[in-house]
Design a protein around this nucleic acid. Structure first.
Length: 284
DNA sequence: AGTATCCTGGAA
DNA sequence: TTCCAGGATACT
C-alpha cells in the first residue's frame, strides 16, 4: 500500500476487528497474488497483527503467518456485518465510504467465523503470502532497513546512512533496505519539512538532525490523519472511508499551489521517473 | 546508476 | 492515443 502510515492505520483498525477470530475460508480471484497453501490457514485463529515497513504480518496459531503487501493500489476492507457466505458476489455489501463490495478490483476474500476481509487491488501488484515456521516471513523481512519511528532511528544513524551514498536524498529516503516504510508521498513532504532539495546528493545533506525529526514528525502526522487517500481506487481505510492526510500535505501533488511557508508556487519534476514536488525557495 | 516490468483505468 | 499513478525487483 501505500506507505508506512497507511499500513499502520490498517494494522490498528484490523487489530481491533479480527484478532481472536478464525479464518474459515479464502476465495482467490487473482491466482498469482496469493502465494502459498491456503489450506494452512483454515480454522486457525488470529493471534495478532504486526507491521514491518509496508508489510502487514498477520500472526496465526501454530506459527503460520499471512504477509500482506498492498503495493500501489491495494486495499484491505473489512465488513463485520455479514458472516460466512457462499456467494458474496450475489450479495454486494455497502460500505461507509459509499463503495460496495465485492467490487471490480476485489482479488482475494477472507472469511472469518464472523466478518469478511476484502483484498482489493486494481493494478494487481500486491500480494498475500502464506508463511509457515517463519521461512517465507524471514525471507521477506530480512533485508529491510531501520523502522523510522523506532528509537533506533537517530540522527547519528541517519548521518551514517546518508554519508554512504551520492544518490539524490529522496531516493535514499525511499530505499527500503536503508529506511523501511517511506514512499513517494512522505519522502516529498519530509524533505519540504526539513528544507532540503530532493535532488541534493545524500552525502552532502547537512541538516541531518532536522531531517531525522522531519521524518518522524511527518510519518506520525500521516498516522494521526489515518493515511493519505488521493484517489478512490487506491488507499482507503479498512472501514471504507478515506484517510485525511492529503489535506495536510506539504508539497505532494500540490504543484502550482503556493508553498505553505513562503507562497512560492510548488514545482513538479521527476527523479528516477517518480513524481517529485518541492518548493524551489524553501528547499536548497 | 538508470531502465524495463508486473497490471489496470482514468486523464490529457 | 499517449501518459500517468502510492512499489519493488530484475535487468543492462
Amino acid at each position: 500500500m501505500p506507505e508506512l502510515p497507511e499500513v499502520e492505520t490498517t494494522k490498528r483498525f484490523l487489530s481491533r476487528k479480527i484478532v481472536g477470530k478464525t479464518i474459515k475460508k479464502i476465495e482467490v480471484l487473482s491466482t498469482k497474488q496469493l502465494i502459498g497453501d491456503t489450506k494452512l490457514v483454515i480454522n486457525r485463529k488470529i493471534l495478532g497483527i504486526d507491521r514491518r515497513a509496508k508489510i502487514l504480518i498477520v500472526c496465526l496459531e501454530n506459527k503460520i503467518f499471512l504477509l500482506i503487501h498492498l503495493k500501489l493500489t491495494g486495499q484491505l476492507v473489512y465488513s463485520g456485518s455479514s458472516g460466512e457466505r457462499e456467494v458474496v458476489f450475489g450479495h454486494p455489501i455497502p460500505l461507509a465510504g459509499g463503495n460496495v463490495l465485492p467490487g471490480r478490483s476485489t482479488r482475494i476474500v477472507i472469511y472469518f467465523n464472523q466478518g469478511i476481509l476484502f483484498f482489493n487491488d486494481l493494478r494487481k501488484f500486491g500480494w498475500i503470502k502464506i508463511a509457515q515456521n517463519s521461512k517465507v516471513k524471514d525471507q521477506n523481512l530480512e533485508k529491510l532497513g531501520t523502522e523510522p519511528l523506532s528509537k533506533d532511528f537517530t540522527p547519528k544513524l541517519l548521518a551514517k546512512i546518508l554519508s554512504r551514498s551520492r544518490r539524490p536524498i529522496k531516493l535514499v529516503l525511499m530505499d527500503q533496505e536503508k529506511i523501511a516504510g517511506i514512499g513517494n508521498i512522505y519522502a516529498n513532504d519530509t524533505l519540504w519539512e526539513a528544507g532540503i532539495n530532493p535532488r541534493k546528493p545524500a552525502n552532502q545533506v547537512k541538516r541531518v538532525k532536522e531531517l531525522c525529526l522531519a521524518i518522524k514528525k511527518v510519518l506520525k502526522e500521516g498516522i494521526k490523519y489515518g493515511g493519505s487517500s488521493t484517489d478512490d481506487e487506491a488507499y482507503i481505510k479498512p472501514d471504507g472511508t478515506p484517510g485525511q492526510y492529503q489535506y495536510q500535505a506539504r508539497v505532494y501533488q500540490r504543484d502550482g499551489q503556493p508553498c505553505r511557508q513562503c507562497g512560492t508556487l510548488i514545482q513538479r519534476t521527476k527523479i528516477s521517473n517518480r513524481g517529485t514536488f518541492f518548493c524551489p525557495k524553501c528547499q536548497k
